[in-house]
Write a protein that binds this DNA or RNA. Structure first.
Length: 853
RNA sequence: GCCGGUGUGGCGGAACGGCAGACGCGAUGGACUCAAAAUCCAUUGAGGGCAACCUCAUGGGGGUUCAAGUCCCUCCACCGGCACCA
């Protein structure tokens, strides 16, 4: 008998798997058996961390388990290989980003293999490889040209260039998309983000806003509600109306968006964002004071986060210009205010102080007029009475007597002071008034979204070049398909604060116009790396295709992904972009499915000392060290056992040792069983009838374990409770004196079940027991339901809802037999004597409850 | 402010409305050892009783039910998302 020495058996089995060629998946799987198990591909930073280990262990447990269930599994991996750290390494250490990246990939690949993760390595992709990024460029061009299948659906191209205010991270020296700014800071480096006016390329994700939102309903079964809700919030649909206000004395107009068009007759002033394109013009028109202009300037220079903070005071500046309320022809003042933001709606708001709290407070501060236009149904409100006194010409002053504590009336009611709509319930008026405006050419019903188009331009080298050439005569011209990929120049020079190295790479920048052949200039922006990760999962289905990004037949055979596993931090980033991109891929005719990921599991973080492991906090546990010390199987087992996958997991080395102990004890049982069995039986199920009592008890325990394990893993991904069931079985195995035949059967069952969690020790144990075939391909054990049904069980006996006794009955006992025995129990008899039995409840295999009075 | 989630022993965590605390960690006592580690055995929610047992316990309060950690109402705390969103 030898001790459990994981390092040795793990190395041996990893060699076996390597010799077998790892885990290739069929090109075209059968539609009813295919299972696409996907984990979020890592950024090759150099080493894997515990977050990766957790993600990939969960994915592997599932992939291996599904294979054992007889599914054809695609379980691929690749590398999110473009990005800034590679470029920083080039600046700091003079290593070329490509070399740095590929070295890191090589190392991390070894680490993953050391963990025993069963990937289809033959489909590995790295998005910095030209044969991958070429297709990203291809997508871009299709979107830019609005190529045929797309044009049937879209009037405007999905990729376009625009100039406007962009988020700029000064540390990363590049533009960021809205989704990549969190709380005013860069999502990667945490630096505060500036607003700049700049030209950038965008993807028109807003064209899919409605579909992206509606699609969430269909994902309801397979996605965590939290992620669905986050995406809903992010898309931020709101139904309302556009209203056009003419600027008095000019032919210009201001358009507002409102969800309360029913309050239009109560609009007594207009407020626009300082960044509004008409701000300067209106200030000139209204002869705005120099002081006012200075204030507006200050607003614009204050960060959005500061400006829109709850505690920040609302400041307004009267431009002096006026506009006309299209509903009643009234002339009202136009203010610029810090609380109006340009990136929602139209950047202009009609203010109705009587029915909007913010407008109310603002109106009080600047002594602006109020007019009630909605009154509660069937009654007068005291607040409203306060307003009734103040006509539009008669303004309130701040802190006017009787005005304190009075607020806007924001609820439903009946319209008053509203021209032809007076007397109408406000809900009804919303629709009528919007259409009325539409008929008069002054706006109409509309839907807006908080979602903005996706800015994909990055002023960095290590990314996918945007395949466009600028020609003085022809404008922005896409690179012809035959010239793809536009390759990154290898001779770029990297220096700190030198901006984008591509700008200085003459060999790259200088190009001939594809149309007129004149000297032209190549675009030097590269694409956001989230573009690369928006379709990598599709590429895995056809990783080496050199004629197209994917083959429709293969993509349709595998997609959508059956189970996606990754961190929740991508809820409104990668997971939203990928959904968008998948719909574009579909509209290009490359896939049929509407959604890329049928089911999503967001795994929790790995914590140490209550907080997320991070270099800056110095609370890192190195996976390699743990594998060195305990073996990969122990690390995997601990990660699966310590918490359910979606919850955070606190790293606890004592817990790791507990798992190590379990494997050692399992090993001891295997070695013992291997030594005591001479007969050539293969560990198959013994026949129950012939078993002695203790053997029979163990046999039943085995059945219970199989049942619990299979339902916990297959349906609920409750790896922790499945493992606990095996621990129970092992405890039973150790404590009972049972025969070799049934012990061997117990071990065989357990190894088959546990194989997907601890593949090395299970494979080796299988071999040592001399079982036929191997643990990997052996079918999962089936439950002997008959054995479970005949067994006796202990049920609880309740009197008036309290457990008073226990009784052993056959599992399939009928109610009246149980009742007879229960009522005869001395304790029960005592408690019910002299009382009426009102009710009896029998829950088979659970309890028997008597209610008396 | 709006929306979502979570709240159970010393800790990680279990419990289709049906015996709360499976399993693991830790702790305590014991065996082995010169000793320690490793391993093994026992105990381990709180309180009471010599005992068989009893009482109390799933963030607080109410309710539905024979039966509630689980369902309903309400409040509190923490975590996450969105937010002067017009």
């Amino acid at each position: 008998m030898s001790d459990y020495y994981p390092q040795k058996i793990e190395t041996e089995w990893q060699r076996v798997w390597s010799d077998r060629g790892f885990w290739p998946a069929p090109e075209i799987p059968s539609s009813d058996r295919k299972y696409y198990c996907l984990v979020m591909y890592p950024y090759p930073s150099g080493r894997i961390h515990m977050g990766h280990v957790r993600n990939y262990t969960i994915g592997d447990a599932l992939a291996r388990y599904r294979r054992k269930e007889g599914r054809e599994v695609l379980h691929p991996i690749g590398w999110d290989a473009f990005g800034l750290p590679a470029e920083n390494a080039a600046i700091d250490r003079g290593v070329h980003p490509a070399k740095w990246t590929y070295d890191n990939i090589a190392h991390m690949k070894r680490q993953l293999q050391r963990l025993g993760i069963s990937y289809a390595w033959n489909r590995e992709v790295a998005c910095c490889a030209p044969d991958y990024y070429r297709w990203g460029q291809w997508f871009f061009i299709k979107m830019f040209e609005n190529a045929d299948p797309l044009a049937r659906k879209h009037t405007r191209p999905l990729a376009y260039q625009s100039e406007g205010l962009v988020n700029f991270c000064p540390k990363c020296e590049t533009i960021l998309a809205n989704e990549q700014v969190e709380d005013g800071k860069c999502w990667r480096c945490d630096s505060p983000v500036d607003l700049r006016r700049q030209r950038e390329w965008k993807f028109r994700i807003t064209a899919y806003a409605e579909e992206l939102l509606a699609g969430l309903d269909d994902l309801g079964n397979g996605w965590p509600s939290q992620v669905l809700e986050m995406q809903r919030n992010w898309i931020g649909r709101s139904v309302g109306a556009h209203i056009v206000f003419a600027v008095a004395g000019t032919s210009d107009s201001l358009t507002v968006f409102t969800t309360r068009v029913d309050t239009l007759f109560g609009a007594t002033y207009m407020v626009i964002a300082p960044e509004h394109p008409m701000t300067a013009q209106l200030c000139d028109l209204g002869r705005c004071s120099p002081e006012g202009r200075r204030q507006i300037d200050t607003m614009m220079r204050t960060s959005k986060k500061m400006r829109t903070d709850d505690s920040t005071e609302k400041i307004g500046v009267d431009t002096g210009a006026k506009c006309v309320n299209p509903a009643n022809g009234e002339t009202i003042p136009i203010f610029v205010a810090n609380y109006v933001v340009m990136d929602y709606g139209t950047g202009a708001v009609m203010a109705v102080p009587t029915h909007d709290q913010r407008d109310f407070e603002f109106a009080r501060k600047y002594a602006l007029p109020l007019r009630v236009v909605i009154r509660p149904q069937g009654g007068m409100d005291t607040n409203i009475l306060t307003f009734e006194d103040k006509s539009i010409s008669q303004s309130t002053s701040p802190g006017a007597p009787g005005a304190s504590g009075v607020g806007a009336y924001i609820d439903d009611g009946v319209l008053v002071n509203s021209g032809p709509f007076t007397g109408m319930p406000n809900r009804e008026a919303m629709e009528k008034m919007a259409n009325w405006l539409k008929d008069r050419g002054q706006g109409g019903p509309t839907v807006t979204y908080r979602l903005r188009d996706w800015g994909i331009s990055r002023q960095r080298y290590w990314g996918n070049p945007i395949p466009v050439i600028y020609c003085d005569d022809c404008g922005a011209v896409p690179v012809p398909d035959g010239d793809l990929p536009v390759r990154l120049p290898e001779d770029a020079v990297f220096s700190a604060h030198g901006g984008n190295p591509l700008n200085h790479a003459a060999s790259f920048v200088e190009a001939a116009c594809p149309r007129c052949r004149k000297r032209a200039r190549r675009e030097t922006d590269t694409m956001d790396t989230f573009v690369d990760s928006s379709w990598y999962f599709a590429r895995y289905t056809d990783a080496h295709n050199s004629d197209a990004p994917i083959d429709r037949r293969k993509a349709d055979a595998w997609l959508p992904v059956d189970q996606y596993i990754g961190g929740i931090e991508h809820a409104c980033l990668h997971l939203l972009y990928a959904r968008f991109f998948h719909k574009v891929t579909r509209d290009l005719g490359l896939v049929s499915s509407d959604e890329p990921f049928a089911r999503l599991l967001t795994q929790g973080m790995v914590l140490l000392g209550g907080s997320k492991m991070s270099k800056s906090k110095g609370n890192i546990v190195d996976p390699d060290e743990m594998i060195e010390k305990y073996g990969a199987d122990t690390v995997r087992l601990f990660i699966l056992f310590a918490a359910p996958p979606e919850k955070d997991l606190e790293w606890n080395e004592a817990g790791v040792q507990g798992c190590f102990r379990f494997l050692k004890r399992l090993w001891r049982q295997i070695e013992q069983s291997a030594g005591e069995t001479q007969s050539p039986d293969d560990g198959s199920s013994p026949s129950v009838a012939k078993l002695t009592a203790p053997d029979r008890a163990l046999y039943v325990k085995i059945q219970q374990t199989i049942q619990k394990f299979r339902s916990d893993v297959s349906q609920r991904f409750q790896f922790n409770t499945a493992i606990a069931a095996c621990m129970e079985l092992l405890n039973t195995l150790e404590s009972q004196d049972t025969g070799p035949r049934v012990r061997r059967y117990a071990l065989r069952s357990m190894l088959s079940l546990l194989f997907s969690f601890v593949p090395h020790v299970a494979a080796e144990g299988w071999k040592r027991l001399g079982l036929s075939g191997d643990a990997e391909t052996a079918q999962l054990p089936d439950v002997d339901a008959a054995a479970l049904a005949v067994e006796s069980v202990v049920i609880a006996v309740q009197v008036n809802g309290k457990v008073r006794d226990r009784i052993e009955v056959p599992a399939d006992a009928n109610e009246s037999d149980v009742a007879t025995r229960v009522l005869a129990l001395p304790k029960v008899a005592e408690l019910i004597s002299g009382k009426n039995i009102e009710k009896q409840i029998y829950v088979p295999q659970r309890l028997f409850s008597v209610v008396v009075r």
